[in-house]
């Protein structure tokens, strides 16, 4: 199924995240990942949601999100956008394998952020595919623990989410945002 990335600007209120996530479970939409954080405006938070579904589902998701009063803007993030995830991976590293692992990590431009006798903790940022590729490689050495964020995404160039057409001004001709 196709993955789509949505950028969502919301009021920075308590409870907003539960309204957004509740909507997904209630309407049976599949969230692949969700990441939330502050923006340049302290009253506004930005949620990046990766959803799976066909065009009907994505249109429904966008419309239902727009219906939430705490949602200020929803927009699809274009395919050529910048997307990043972050992962911290604790991998088994005995003295005899440590070098191989570090080499591998360098190829991925990842970093070692912690080390002890038997383990390394690797930090990597990048798009989903890159992180998954490194994870696959490290599996051979034994991944003991891993934590991974959802994707965040931003459009390239001068396109900005906050300037996208206002919620009230639907393009009735097409009726999708």
């Amino acid at each position: 199924m196709m993955k789509h990335i949505l950028g969502v600007l919301v009021e920075n209120h308590p409870g907003v995240l539960s309204k957004v996530s509740g909507l997904f479970s209630r309407r049976g939409f599949n969230i692949y990942s969700l990441a939330v954080g502050m923006t340049e405006d302290p009253t506004v938070s930005r949620i990046t949601i990766v959803v799976e579904g066909d065009s009907y589902i994505v249109e429904q998701v966008i419309k239902q999100l727009n219906k939430l009063i705490d949602v200020i803007k929803v927009s699809k993030i274009e395919e050529d956008s910048l997307t990043r995830e972050l992962a911290l991976i604790k991998v088994k590293a005995e003295p005899n394998t440590r070098h191989q692992i570090v080499e591998l990590i360098n190829i991925f431009r990842a970093q070692v952020v912690d080390i002890n006798k038997n383990h390394l903790i690797v930090e990597i940022t990048g798009d989903s595919e890159k992180i998954t590729a490194l994870v696959d490689m490290l599996k051979d050495y034994g991944i003991e623990e891993m934590v991974r964020t959802g994707a965040i995404a931003i459009n390239r160039g001068k396109r900005m989410l906050k300037d996208e057409r206002n919620k009230g001004g639907y393009d009735n001709g097409n009726n999708v945002l």
């Binding site: 939430l68 009063i69 949602v71 919620k167």
Partner: peptide, 15 residues
């Protein structure tokens, strides 16, 4: 003043 809530009352003239 709710920036996330501005219902559309007038249908699009083209439509």
């Amino acid at each position: 003043n709710l920036r996330g809530y501005r219902p559309t009352y007038m249908g699009h003239p083209g439509q």
